[in-house]
């Protein structure tokens, strides 16, 4: 099944619970999005800059989340 790396998809994940960059990347594996790793990183970076999520450190790691 194909997964779309979209702003809406990222927003939904971050509204549900705080996630690290690695958690987010796991939601959009290259084999499911048909994007290269570089394209995935660039797209996620642009989306996160636009969403400007809240940040908090949990267990020593930076997590992003969105308040609805």
């Amino acid at each position: 099944r194909e997964v779309q790396l979209t702003e809406d998809a990222v927003r939904r994940y971050l509204a549900r619970k705080p996630m690290t960059t690695k958690d987010l990347l796991k939601k959009f594996p290259a084999r499911r999005t048909a994007l290269s790793s570089e394209q995935t990183v660039n797209a996620l970076a642009q989306i996160l800059k636009r969403l400007n999520p809240e940040r908090k450190v949990i267990g020593d790691k930076m997590h992003f989340f969105l308040k609805e």
């Binding site: 960059t21 990347l25 796991k26 790793s37 990183v41 996160l48």
Partner: peptide
């Protein structure tokens, strides 16, 4: 692989560095 995931996470964090 997990090392590729680590590399991608590091690249993403680097992209976001100014912003974070």
């Amino acid at each position: 692989s997990s090392s590729e995931a680590d590399e991608m996470a590091a690249a993403l964090e680097a992209e976001l560095n100014d912003f974070m």
